[in-house]
């Protein structure tokens, strides 16, 4: 094994469905950015069960980040039951996060778009809408019992996927 053959190694291998990127200005810890990107890709269907995630070494070589950071992100995803590491083979997607079928998702998206148009007509700007949605979302899940909402995150943390 030689150093730095990240590109040539992919010959004969399946290319990973997703590529990580970093936003240094976001203030979100690097490992969490990786976790979020996998979850996001799962929600939107870019990743599905059986897919292989990029090897730690390849992520490290392309982003120039600490290997411990990538391992930490993968560990976190493994704890959530979303991925599984198979020694000598790689890391694979185990579960999905897209909870509803595509037609239903399309319907929800359409009704949301209708609501957004209403909010816009009422005079709310983008950040106003985002704030309203975030606040209402938080209230909604708090009223529901608040079992899985995380502090401040507007994003819903889905559970029970495994």
């Amino acid at each position: 094994m030689t150093i730095g053959q990240g590109d040539s190694e992919q010959v004969g291998f399946q290319v990973s469905p997703i590529e990580f990127r970093l936003d240094p200005a976001s203030g979100v810890p690097t490992y969490l950015q990786l976790v979020h990107q996998v979850e996001h890709a799962l929600r939107l269907g870019y990743l599905k069960p059986g897919d292989q995630l990029p090897k730690v070494r390849d992520v490290v070589a392309s982003l120039a980040i600490n290997p411990n950071t990538v391992s930490k992100a993968y560990r976190e995803l493994e704890t959530k039951g979303l991925i599984v590491g198979r020694p000598g083979q790689g890391t694979f997607i185990l579960a999905t996060l897209s909870q509803v079928a595509l037609p239903e998702l399309t319907g929800l998206r359409r009704s949301l778009r209708g609501w957004l148009a209403k909010a816009d007509t009422a005079g709310l700007d983008e950040s106003g809408i985002a704030a309203l949605v975030a606040s209402e979302l938080r209230d909604f899940y708090e009223r529901l019992g608040g079992s899985s909402t995380r502090s401040g995150a507007a994003e819903d943390e889905t559970e029970g996927v495994a």
Partner: peptide, 14 residues
């Protein structure tokens, strides 16, 4: 800088 650090990090992973 990025390439340099990427090499260092890859050596760490390897």
């Amino acid at each position: 800088r990025h390439d340099f650090m990427a090499t260092v990090m890859a050596a760490m992973a390897d």
